[in-house]
Design a protein around this nucleic acid. Structure first.
Length: 335
DNA sequence: AAGGGACGCAACCGCCTCCTA
DNA sequence: ATAGGAGGCGGTTGCGTCCCT
């Protein structure tokens, strides 16, 4: 491993104008420990920026770009590495649905995560599932599937993970209360405790969608035959009544857009706060009908076979289980 | 045990915008 | 006003690792 290749930059090979080409050989490929140390040491003493001259003065046979990338994506002290959490997954899906492939913009709302990491996550995980569903990742079909099934499902998992982790009662029970005061109280408590998960779960729009997803699954589960007709009616109900409701919540006039100019320094947990506050914490938004949410939840749990708790890393990364994929294929065919 | 395909991720490429002299 | 340098960004690639047969 780490077989460093020292590549002679061909005179014929076009290199960027800003690249330092006065050195005949530039290193490429994986960085060595020594190079990392050199870069860290130099930045510690002189700060970052002016990457071309930095590379030169530090004695690194790398382009300025390469140094910058190595620092920003890997060596920076506040960079977070490792598994993308469920909360982060949900946020990525939400922000991507809003902004598309604006990776750096999305990354601004996930502290410590780099645009490269998010981009890789999207390509390796999300696009893989789109392929499984035999649809294009940019198609309306896939986006709807993501919005109405995947994201609510993630919220569901986050809720259960929270219950498992700290023994606290599921947030759904408090969030489903018609009392806006209670919702606000829960929110305040979460804020005070710095409990990001709870802040997240109090996002009205996601709670609503979770509830509706549960309803859909529950109805599907209770029917003897999962005919395309029954799916058709479900999706019809979804696209007309609740789609409108959902978008009213997400895109409504009083919904405060997440904007880096106002929230950059606060991080993602505060984005959630803004979302909630933007809706005035109005629990009316939570009511997606008169369905007994708790009962729906129970039925959902019954459907959820292989996911026994959903707290392992593997499970966190496993977006859909076998049943999910089967159901999604049925669901997708209705669009 | 070995080979090969799939996967994940670090790094590179090229284009674009911004800044500054 | 403009040209060139610097940095940012999204797309792509290469390679090490994992997993399955």
């Amino acid at each position: 491993m780490n077989q460093q290749q020292v590549v002679k930059v061909s005179k014929n090979k076009q290199i960027n104008s800003e690249d330092d080409d006065d050195s005949s050989d530039l290193r490429r490929g994986p960085w060595t420990v020594d190079e990392d140390f050199t870069l860290i040491n130099y930045i510690a003493h002189h700060g970052e920026g002016r990457w071309n001259s930095l590379a030169r003065f530090a004695g690194l046979k790398r382009t300025g770009k390469s140094c910058r990338l190595r620092w920003l994506n890997y060596l920076r002290p506040d960079v977070r590495r490792g598994n993308i959490t469920l909360e982060e997954q949900l946020l990525i899906l939400e922000l991507h649905s809003r902004w598309g492939n604006r990776w750096s913009k999305i990354a601004q709302h996930l502290p410590g995560r780099t645009d490269n990491e998010i981009k890789n996550y999207w390509r390796t995980r999300v696009q893989k599932h789109a392929k499984q569903l035999k649809c294009d990742v940019n198609s309306k079909q896939f986006k709807d599937t993501m919005r109405y099934l995947w994201m609510p499902r993630l919220v569901e998992r986050i809720q259960r993970a929270a219950t498992t982790d700290d023994g606290a009662p599921p947030l759904a029970s408090s969030a489903s209360s018609p009392s806006s005061a209670m919702n606000t109280a829960c929110y305040s408590t979460a804020m005070a405790a710095g409990d990001h998960r709870r802040q997240f779960m109090l996002m009205p729009q996601y709670y609503a969608m979770t509830t509706h997803s549960n309803l859909m699954i529950a109805q599907e589960n209770s029917s003897t035959v999962a005919s395309s007709e029954s799916f058709g009616s479900l999706s019809s109900e979804l696209t007309e009544a609740n789609y409108a409701n959902y978008h009213q919540v997400i895109n409504g006039a009083d919904h405060q857009q997440i904007d880096s100019s106002t929230t950059t320094s606060y991080g993602w947990q505060n984005d959630f706060a803004i979302n909630t506050v933007g809706n005035n914490g109005n629990s009316d938004q939570l009511g997606m009908g008169s369905v007994d949410d708790r009962r729906s939840n129970e039925q959902w749990m019954m459907m959820d076979d292989v996911d026994n708790g959903g707290s392992s890393d593997k499970d966190n990364n496993l977006l859909w289980n076998v049943d999910d994929v089967w159901f999604l294929q049925q669901f997708s065919s209705c669009f």
